[in-house]
């Protein structure tokens, strides 16, 4: 937008804009084709499934039914047939949202300084540090989760260290708690925070930071007023990449949380698996998709408005 000319009314400019839009679409089309083929397109199948009747043993019967959507919000009590708000679903949604939010905040609190640290290394060694961040993630998610379990379990490293140091006399039960889920998800999604933040931090112009100090700003002030606003796109990208996958996380809650409490991902999986209720599973996931999408679009619209106000 930097090259936006003031002569918006000129015919030439309008033609140039049209050409740019065409170019933009051309650039985006290959990605869109793949996504429509292998992600969004098939999702239409799910949308259709959410309005069909559940098959006897998984799958669907091709008869229209709103039962799936009905069950997302309302529960018919199996004992007295009364209809009430599906509080089991609500509390599962709430737990997922709360844990994902905490995960995002923790990942940001750890990831931002780490990205900053990497971005302020000499240029030649930055890629190495970046690689060091991703190396642990070259091992498989399941094996990594099991390794975390070894670290935090009652006879694990952390408890053993704390006990031999005399800090605690009894092991702290960390495994199979919400804390373990949050810790595990933070661990698993940390690179998704560090990498985007780093990507926008790396191009940060430190002359602006220097200017801040020249104006006698404190370090905290420079951080809040100069650095964070400049790397905001990266922070936002990181938060999106951490928060949304946490919402649908499946493996970590099951292994580290001990599977005693479901999260949305597990609830949906239950419907497609042992529960044999595909329409409910489909409706739950379309609902989740809608909520997240609306929130994102609102965010994008707001940030664009904010940008336009700044730029014009």
């Amino acid at each position: 937008m930097a090259d936006n000319s003031q002569r918006n009314d000129s015919v030439f400019e309008a033609a140039a804009h049209r050409a740019r839009v065409r170019r933009n679409w051309l650039l985006s089309t290959p990605a869109l084709i793949i996504l429509v083929l292998a992600a969004s397109g098939p999702l239409l199948v799910m949308l259709a499934y959410s309005f069909l009747q559940a098959g006897d043993y998984g799958g669907v019967e091709y008869r229209f039914s709103t039962e799936g959507w009905f069950q997302v919000f309302l529960a018919r009590d199996i004992f007295d047939d009364t209809v009430s708000v599906a509080d089991a679903h609500l509390s599962i949604f709430w737990r997922s949202a709360r844990l994902s939010f905490l995960t995002t905040v923790t990942a940001l609190a750890l990831g931002f300084p780490t990205a900053y640290f990497i971005a302020t290394r000499p240029r030649s060694s930055r890629n190495l540090w970046l690689f060091l961040v991703t190396v642990p993630f070259w091992t498989n998610l399941l094996i990594r989760t099991f390794a975390i379990m070894e670290v935090i379990k009652n006879q694990g490293i952390v408890n053993t260290l704390l006990m031999s140091a005399g800090v605690i006399s009894e092991p702290i039960q960390m495994l199979y708690t919400d804390f373990a889920i949050m810790l595990g998800m933070t661990y698993v999604y940390l690179p998704l925070m560090i990498l985007p933040v780093y990507a926008s931090m790396e191009k940060l112009d430190f002359r602006l930071v220097e200017a801040g100090y020249d104006l006698y700003a404190t370090r905290i002030k420079v951080l809040w007023r100069v650095i964070i606003p400049l790397v905001k796109p990266g922070i936002v990208a990181g938060c999106i990449l951490v928060f949304i996958p946490s919402l649908g996380a499946y493996v970590t809650p099951r292994v580290l949380g001990g599977g005693r409490n479901l999260m949305i991902g597990n609830l949906i999986e239950l419907q497609f698996g042992q529960g044999s209720n595909w329409p409910l599973g489909a409706a739950l996931s379309i609902f989740l998709l809608l909520v997240v999408m609306v929130a994102l679009l609102l965010y994008v619209r707001n940030s664009q408005k904010a940008n336009n106000i700044v730029r014009h």
Binding site: Y57, I78, S91, R260, N261, L262, N266, S276, N277
Partner: peptide, 20 residues
């Protein structure tokens, strides 16, 4: 045996209740 769909639905409700 595999239980009938109606029974499975009840089992799923109990199970969800248990793990909510």
């Amino acid at each position: 045996e595999a239980c009938s769909p109606d029974i499975t639905k009840m089992y799923t409700a109990i199970w969800t209740e248990l793990q909510k």
